[in-house]
């Protein structure tokens, strides 16, 4: 296995003139400093979050749960409770009810749909379990809050339309503004100004 790697680094025993000169003139350290110096002239890759910029995740991102409606605006959730059953941490509560008013796609909708984000580990098994594609893990990831109660999110909030459209490809850094509220701090993205970092 010598031909692989160790040969290049085995020069410590026989110190030739060349090696001695290298050592005297600090070539090894200069080589490293040269690499770092070169980076002075390259583009910055860091992201100024949360003041000016924000990362918009890719489509498959597993953030805060979203409940969806179909094209006619009917609730897709039929209250089948499969998400509750598939959840390894038992953080989802579903209470189904019968509904004849045509709110949902069938005559059964979720009366209550609650997720406890303190227990959730965002594994996405509920998403896989959902037979109607009602439940999707969305792209919201700023979930810190000042109270524990806020971490239990219910259907009424999750079914609202997403701030980032579903079709948006993601994987970009966009311009953003920091908004401090009483209950939460949010970074509002502006999708029109985008950049990629690599």
């Amino acid at each position: 296995m010598n031909e692989l790697s160790t040969d290049n680094h085995k020069n410590s025993s026989s110190l030739s003139i060349k090696d001695l000169l290298k050592k005297v003139f600090f070539i090894d350290l200069i080589q490293g400093l040269f690499i770092t110096f070169n980076y002075t002239f390259t583009k910055t890759i860091t992201e100024r979050y949360p003041d000016d910029e924000k990362w918009i995740p890719y489509k498959r991102f597993r953030g805060l749960h979203t409940l969806n409606r179909n094209k006619e605006g009917k609730e897709l959730c039929v209250g089948c409770e499969l998400c509750q059953k598939s959840c390894p941490t038992q953080c989802i509560t579903v209470i189904p009810m019968e509904d004849k008013t045509g709110k949902g796609i069938a005559d059964r909708i979720a009366y209550r749909w609650e997720i406890n984000l303190l227990r959730c580990m965002f594994c996405g098994l509920c998403e896989d379990a959902c037979p109607t594609e009602a439940l999707k893990l969305g792209r919201e990831y700023e979930l810190a809050s000042f109270s524990m109660q806020r971490q239990i999110r219910s259907k009424e909030e999750l079914i609202k339309p997403q701030p980032i459209p579903v079709e948006f490809e993601g994987g970009v850094i966009v311009r953003a503004t920091l908004e401090k509220g009483d209950k939460e701090i949010k970074v509002k993205p502006d999708l029109s100004v985008q950049k990629r970092w690599w």
Binding site: Y58, F61, R62, F122, C123, L125, G171
Partner: peptide, 22 residues
């Protein structure tokens, strides 16, 4: 970034499943 694109998470991927991938 590549993993986020592939499976939606950056640390805890949960990408493999029994019988294939997600």
């Amino acid at each position: 970034d590549l993993f986020e694109m592939l499976c939606g998470a950056r640390l805890t991927y949960n990408y493999m499943k029994i019988g294939g991938v997600r």
